[in-house]
């Protein structure tokens, strides 16, 4: 008699973990996007927000650990499921044919792997700043609220500086595109796996999934695109010495952007 002990080792259990971790990660990327969109406001806003997060101390680390665990579980289950799936179909068809399976759904493995590579780069780039130690020199003094007067890392400037490099921007756009593509299947799939989809909601979920994936991509892509187009700029960047980075900026544009 199978009991709940075997739940996590069953096919449906593994899928359930995929879905649940997927849900957590979807919620995270939505939150992350909302945070990032503050780049369009005054640098004060996003820097306040970043400082708020950093000031959470151990809680932040707890959240980070939780997210890391979630990602690890998501990947671990994916690997297990893929191995089982390969084993179940050792031989493919000569005339392979697809009826309904979306391209996104068939490339989850690849989009997932590339997104993982992106996440590692992204963490190294902005969170740990190992790829660009010079970001540490971008400082900002908070103007308002309880933390007024505190000097913090200028996140706004860091983002602008980062995205002013076309290669990096393009990689970001490509990666969020893939993530959106991953979500194009994953978002709706999650409802099915968690048992939240039925005849009545199936259509709504499918439409929501597409809308979500497209919106997610557009909003994310808007950030590097705006920076590259010069719609978003930052004064603070000019204060750093590393001129090689700053040189790419068209000099005459900057005064218009800052008020």
């Amino acid at each position: 008699m199978p009991t709940s002990k075997s739940f996590f080792f069953s096919s449906l259990g593994k899928k359930f973990i995929m879905g649940l971790t997927g849900l957590i990660l979807v919620l995270f990327v939505i939150g992350h996007l909302v945070g990032n969109l503050q780049i369009f406001a005054d640098p004060e806003v996003i820097n306040q927000y970043a400082h708020l997060l950093h000031s959470m101390g151990p809680l932040l680390w707890l959240v980070r650990a939780f997210l890391l665990l979630t990602v690890v579980l998501h990947i671990w289950m994916a690997v297990l499921l893929v191995i089982e799936n390969r084993r179940a179909r050792p031989q493919g068809y000569e005339g392979e044919h697809t009826h309904r399976a979306s391209y996104a759904s068939r490339t989850m493995k690849f989009s997932g792997i590339i997104v993982l590579a992106f996440i590692i780069f992204h963490l190294a780039h902005f969170t740990l700043r190992v790829t660009h130690p010079e970001y540490e020199n971008l400082r900002y003094t908070l103007q308002e609220g309880a933390y007024a007067g505190t000097e913090v890392l200028d996140v706004h400037a860091m983002m602008v500086m980062g995205f002013q490099k076309p290669l990096i921007s393009l990689f970001y756009i490509f990666a969020v595109g893939l993530l959106a593509f991953h979500l194009r299947h994953g978002f709706g799939s999650m409802f099915q796996t968690l048992g939240l989809r039925n005849k009545h909601w199936g259509g709504v979920i499918e439409k929501t999934t597409i809308t979500f994936a497209v919106a997610y991509f557009l909003f994310n892509a808007a950030i590097p695109l705006s920076v590259m187009a010069g719609v978003v700029d930052n004064e603070n960047i000019k204060s750093i010495d590393d001129s090689a980075e700053v040189m790419t900026l068209p000099e005459d544009d900057s005064p218009e952007q800052t008020d």
């Binding site: 199978p2 075997s6 069953s10 096919s11 449906l12 593994k14 899928k15 499921l81 089982e84 799936n85 084993r87 179940a88 179909r89 309904r100 399976a101 979306s102 759904s105 068939r106 989850m108 299947h185 709706g188 799939s189 099915q192 796996t193």
Partner: peptide
């Protein structure tokens, strides 16, 4: 479900 798993079928990836 347990018997299905034992038989060695693959897992649904919701592609329908």
């Amino acid at each position: 479900v347990a018997t299905m798993d034992e038989a060695g079928f693959g897992n649904c990836t919701n592609q329908y």
